[in-house]
Design a protein around this nucleic acid. Structure first.
Lengths: 127, 127
DNA sequence: ACTAAAAGGAGTAATAATTATTGGTTTACC
DNA sequence: GGTAAACCAATAATTATTACTCCTTTTAGT
């Protein structure tokens, strides 16, 4: 990584992710940034998403229709996925599972880093 | 669907899923059944998994390394996924979220059918 | 500033999981 | 027995994602 900053495009990808709550796919990001960065390539979006993921400033929160969906909100929260339209929404009301993690760790002897809780259904528009 | 029963191969796929707790992928199922059904085709496995999923006797519980993993255990439970070796294990100790579902339904107006809770980490062998 | 090394990127080719198609076989049911 | 639907193998097609090649930009050390 460069010491100073992210590159222009990497920064743009990150900021787009920060600015939206739609939990976009790589393709969505590509199409959104293409007008402003006409020489952007889809491979660059994928590569930078991976870099941002390694840097722990972005994570994949769900796979909807075979397609990874990303989020720059790193605090623990859950998601709702509409099975019909594929929309992904944040769910903040959620119990703290710290105790549960501890219990599972002790009983299973696995080291658990994090968890992912996804609710599936039909959103208000689709039902 | 035929009125009597599942076809031989569909039944074999379903029974294999019932008999294991490894949460296999389509490919794993294919390779496991191939010796006994030499003319089995991978497409048949995919197609039947989809049929079984529609019939609600099987469900996809996780995507590990870009690969769907299936489970015939339909009662609500959670899973542990090892980030290193990709193993998927059942986690039964888990709070009942019925109340939570109700709260989310009321506050978000989405109709929630089910949820999926996955824990990620390194299994005892890998850590 | 100068330069070698590393990072970043576009464009394209390659992978890999999954799905669709086609054409033939088996089964159910009358 | 005949017909329509279910089933299936084989293959082709699709689609998301990754790897590769070659070029440009940036960085760090002198």
């Amino acid at each position: 990584m460069r010491s100073q900053n992210y590159s222009k495009k990497r920064q743009a990808i990150y900021e787009l992710l920060l600015s939206t709550d739609t939990h976009p796919s790589a393709d969505w990001i590509y199409n959104k940034l293409k007008p402003e960065y006409p020489d952007l390539s889809l491979g660059t979006v994928y590569r930078n998403l991976k870099v941002l993921e390694e840097n722990q400033v972005v994570k994949s929160v769900a796979v909807v229709g075979g397609c990874e969906r990303y989020d720059a909100r790193m605090s623990q929260h859950s998601h709702f996925v509409c099975k019909r339209c594929g929309k992904v929404e944040d769910i903040f009301y959620c119990e703290d599972m710290t105790d549960l993690l501890e219990i599972i760790h002790i009983s299973s002897d696995h080291h658990i880093d994090n968890y992912n809780l996804i609710f599936y259904g039909n959103c208000s528009k689709c039902s």
